[in-house]
Simulated assay, not measured.
Amino acid sequence: MIQETLITTVNLQGEVHIAPMGVHVNKDQCIILPFRPSTTLDNMLKTKTAVINYCDDVRIFAGCLTGRRDWPLLPTRQIEGYYLADTLAHAELKVVRLEDDDTRPKLFCQAVYEANHSPFQGFNRAQYSVLEAAILISRLDRLPWEKVQAELDYLRVGLDKTAGEREREAWGWLMEAIEQHRQGVAA
């Protein structure tokens, strides 16, 4: 199973990096597969740690993909690092094994600490739409524009029917990024 999460890592200077990432969950093990090049990968290889943040605020997902990475953080308990203050739960991880790959290495991780901070109230379709649009944006250089446009048209239906203020703000950020990408490609 793949869970859409936010990964927080730190470099050797203690600077925090936040990245949306699908994490493979297999029983008691998490597998993180960042593409190269990746700040998340670099940080995890150096510190052998990471934090999975289970969050329902889709603005953070969209924000990380559109240059908005200044989100409130709190210190972790068992590893050197930070978790998002607005996360529902977090898991502090240690890397236990690496399967190296030129494109997408596999980092096998074990949770050393887990905490629930707030109950999950459920997703609305707009949150799903923002998450899927964020995934599309992370792959703009690899997908044909017709596919991207068709997906966005479909996702907008759910957004228009169920979005609150947070979802509309996140969607707006993503649409700005897409427009900037299209203008850059056309230039």
Rank of each mutant, 00 (worst) to 15 (best):
C30K: 11
K48F: 05
R69N: 13
E169R: 10
E132P: 05
R77I: 11
Y54A: 02
R59F: 05
V51F: 02
T162G: 02
I178M: 12
G81T: 12
V185K: 13
Q149P: 00
C55I: 15
K94A: 03
R142V: 05
P75E: 13
E169D: 12
N26A: 12
Q29P: 03
E80I: 12
L73S: 02
G122W: 10
A91E: 14
K147Y: 13
Y113H: 15
L12C: 03
D70V: 09
L12P: 00
I31N: 01
Q121C: 06
E169M: 09
S118F: 05
V58S: 04
Q121N: 07
L74R: 15
L88D: 08
P37M: 12
F123Q: 07
G184S: 12
L155D: 06
D101K: 00
L65N: 07
L155E: 10
V112P: 00
L93M: 06
N53P: 03
E176K: 14
Y82W: 15
M1K: 11
C30W: 14
V130P: 12
K147V: 10
N43E: 08
I137F: 03
A170L: 12
L88C: 11
P72D: 15
R166A: 13
F123R: 08
E99H: 03
R36K: 15
V58T: 12
E99G: 00
Q78M: 08
I32M: 08
A187K: 07
A111N: 02
P119E: 13
Q127Y: 05
P119H: 09
R142N: 07
C64P: 07
L152R: 12
P37E: 10
L84Q: 06
P37F: 10
T76C: 15
D56P: 02
E165C: 02
Q121K: 10
E15Q: 15
D160K: 05
H17P: 01
L84N: 03
I52R: 00
H90Y: 15
N26F: 11
R125G: 14
V157Y: 09
G184A: 12
Q183K: 14
I31P: 01
S129D: 09
Y128F: 15
R104I: 00
A187C: 04
V148S: 07
A85N: 12
G164F: 09
Q29I: 14
